[in-house]
Design a protein around this nucleic acid. Structure first.
Lengths: 152, 152
DNA sequence: TTTAATGATTAAGCGAGTTGAAATATAAAG
DNA sequence: CTTTATATTTCAACTCGCTTAATCATTAAA
């Protein structure tokens, strides 16, 4: 009998395999680098944040983050505005176009999921839906704990 | 009411957010590039294959694939042997060390899943386990269809 | 008000990955 | 046997993202 943890790992491996290729090909087609897309997703999730914050989030120096952001600004994907409370800080946010890229790249990544959902009967869909929503809910709890530890 | 497709998409977004950061940090710590790890995963999944095959799979030219492989061979992560049937081909396979890297990087990526599983009661674990196994099973069907189209 | 600390930017240089073209080796076709 | 096609490798040139170090602007501390 396989444990839930094992099944989760297996499921994640499948998701990665199916999604990464489409994602990489999307990036290549649209001429965005992985670093740029990664930055967009980080900003999308983290909301308005500073340059160093983003660098740390991505595991690079603030100099690297600054240079990466400069390109995204030039491409009209993010806005870099001054923090009124502390004018040393910059506030990084996505433009509408930046948000559109997020949606579009996710769609490229997730097309197969829609086809997968269609393979299930109505009852199965309900069953799986309930299970996933439970996982999503519990993950939020996990995140809240982690955030509390890190003072995030 | 959210559809299963929507829930699947949401769940995948969560998986990506949690896994990519750990994965990137793992790569940096161990001094493997994303391209190298990506290649290892492709080889792991595809099994013995040629250089061009791998390049196409990764969306790069065979020249790029050849150079990437050369480095992996030097690092002792893959073996490049002649195809006895057609000596123009090379057969690319993972070494034991290459397989170890796969395992290790997956573990770095998936630690949070184990913690997540522990948050559920026994009944919930069974429920979610069943749902995911259903998804895994159906995905295999989907893959079989796709492979048939592409003559893979 | 000076001094120190913080945040962002810039410049120079490095290493990695990519491409296109040429070179090599093998196999298949005429 | 000669020609053509296929698979891989090598090379030079280029781009990109990264780092370190220096610089500028702003805030906090002495």
């Amino acid at each position: 009998m396989t444990s839930l943890a094992q099944t989760l790992h297996e499921w994640m491996r499948i998701i990665m395999r199916h999604s990464m290729r489409n994602f990489i090909l999307y990036a290549k087609e649209k001429n965005y680098s992985m670093a740029q897309l990664n930055a967009l997703f980080r900003i999308h999730h983290k909301g308005a944040c500073g340059v160093s914050d983003l660098g740390e989030e991505m595991g690079v120096t603030s100099a690297a983050a600054s240079q990466l952001l400069e390109k995204l600004v030039q491409q009209g994907l993010v806005i870099r505005s001054e923090d009124p409370n502390d004018r040393r800080n910059k506030l990084i946010t996505l433009t509408a176009e930046g948000q559109r890229i997020i949606q579009e790249s996710m769609a490229a990544r997730q097309g197969w999921l829609t086809r997968l959902a269609e393979l299930l009967t109505s009852e199965e869909q309900e069953q799986v839906n309930a299970a996933l929503q439970l996982l999503i809910e519990k993950t939020a709890l996990l995140d809240a704990e982690t955030a509390a530890w890190q003072g995030d």
